[in-house]
């Protein structure tokens, strides 16, 4: 399997970032970037990454199950991660998450039937001073309120 030329170039450079013979270092970044492009860490991705880094499948799967950002199942086009950890919880993160569930009609780790949105309650995103915070894919949204959330969803829907 091949990836986009940009990603291939990135991978080529990435593998060189680790000492000779220790290219396994590139495993987690490769899986994450491949997932960003493919949508999930599919069987094909596992095999391809294992092949390129000269790893056994089990070495890839050990990592795949461990890191929460990696997923075998494709997420929504917009993956919404809402933090409910301490600082966000104190400032309305839980209410925001519940609102999101109702608004999207899905629960934690659910995906809307049209595949547009998926939702996840996550641990601290490191945006505590701008709580409650959430991420849509890699984009942060700070000081969220249910109203701001609704506006965001609307604008994302319009982008389709």
């Amino acid at each position: 399997m091949t990836f986009s030329p940009e990603l291939e170039a990135k991978f080529a450079k990435m593998i060189g970032n680790y000492p000779p013979g220790r290219q396994k270092g590139a495993l987690i970044p490769m899986l994450l970037y491949a997932q960003d492009e493919v949508g999930a860490v599919t069987e094909e991705v596992i095999e391809e990454v294992a092949k390129r880094l000269k790893l056994s499948r089990v070495e890839v799967e050990e990592v795949l199950g461990y890191y929460t950002m990696l997923t075998r199942e494709p997420r929504g086009r917009y993956h919404i991660q809402i933090c409910t950890n301490i600082s966000c919880m104190l400032t309305g993160g839980e209410e925001l998450f519940e609102h999101a569930c109702r608004r999207l009609g899905i629960g934690n780790k659910g995906k809307t039937p049209d595949g547009q949105f998926s939702l996840e309650e996550v641990e601290c995103l490191g945006a505590c001073s701008w709580a409650p915070a959430m991420q849509v894919n890699y984009e942060f949204h700070y000081q969220m309120t249910p109203e701001k959330f609704d506006r965001l969803i609307e604008s994302l829907r319009k982008l389709q």
Binding site: S56, R57, V58, E59, E61, E62, G65, Y66
Partner: peptide, 20 residues
């Protein structure tokens, strides 16, 4: 042989076999 690995984490951590 290295047919076994460890996957998932915390209380869900478990041993995994080499062919899925």
């Amino acid at each position: 042989v290295g047919a076994l690995g460890l996957s998932y984490r915390g209380v869900s951590a478990e041993i995994i076999p080499n062919r899925g």
